[in-house]
Design a protein around this nucleic acid. Sequence first.
DNA 1: ATGTCC
Length: 384
Amino acid sequence: MSSPSLPASVPATVTVFASPTSWIESDAVAQCRQVAALDGMIHVAGMPDLHPGKGAPIGAAMASSVLYPFLVGSDIGCGIAVFPITLKRAVPEKLAARFPDLDRPLDPERDADDPAWNVLAGEIPAGHTEGLGTVGRGNHFVELARVGSVLDAAHAARLGLAAGDLVLVVHTGSRGLGERILRAHTERYGAGPAPDPEAYLARHDEAVRWGALNRRLLAARVAHALGAAPTEPIVDECHNLVEVRDGHYLHRKGAAPGDGRDVLVAGTRGTPSYLVAAHAGPEANHSVAHGAGRKMSRGDALRRNRVKHTVEELRRTPVGSLVVCGDRQLLFEEAPSAYKRIEQVIADLVEHRLATPVVTTVPLVTYKTADVGVATERRKRGRR
DNA sequence: ATGTCC
């Protein structure tokens, strides 16, 4: 019995999980269609935080019979983890000053006696020590937050969370390692598929493990600096990776695994985040959103927010939290107004039955990059 | 996103 096979020219299906009132840039949808036209592509699922990326959309899960490294991008293994933390008092002003320098890597030899190494079980993946224990730039952060609303009491209790509890939220990835892995591919094959998927996946898996280790090291560094005990994460999902699933390659770029996992969907540095129970099916490529999603490009955000906001109001947010960020440009690029409303993203996930909110986390202190002195900042920027 | 383009 011969089964009818589709001609290779038929593009994959594209589904975007956002309500009509949600703002999705047409450029991002166009990128989804471009991806759908790639050889071997089966289905593209756009999450409600969908926005344009460099060549490929961010906030998308893309299934194909062919592995395309560029669809995952350079920050292989990037993800968000949540660690419970116990502190006697949580005064943002006092705690912000105690955050360690998370731009300085942990050196296995020089910092051999750093207690953060206790989270290391086994070898450092790929033997890669460059940048280990650092947060990076862009949308990455380490945040001390307080559990705000409890929206699913039973599920929150299972996670050991109650209103008022403190958590560390860590968003970072594989730093230079993932970038090196993608570059090794693109130098030879550009945006083409991986000719040896197993070889790419072996290196990819190391970057995924490195990212997870990096999040643990960062949480341990902060816990120790704040006088608390390091803990295991209660949530840790990676949103840039390839998963081999149902005999296909499921690429996630800014999309978290949504099949029965708990996921922290990041808000902004000035609004709550949502911990959700995800239950996304095949139509959504088993994925959920990873955050609020950019509403403005970095360039637009810098231009608009430089005239709209003062540095002071971005460092002290509407929810009363502090942002540690010695880089003014990054502060403007990452301002809450550069992002979509997290409530709308969550509402879209709920409406499409992809996730159920469990708790909100409200920022107290968000670390972006070391807080340099004003004089140093002026020298760096070379003006005024 | 990134030891990135001065």
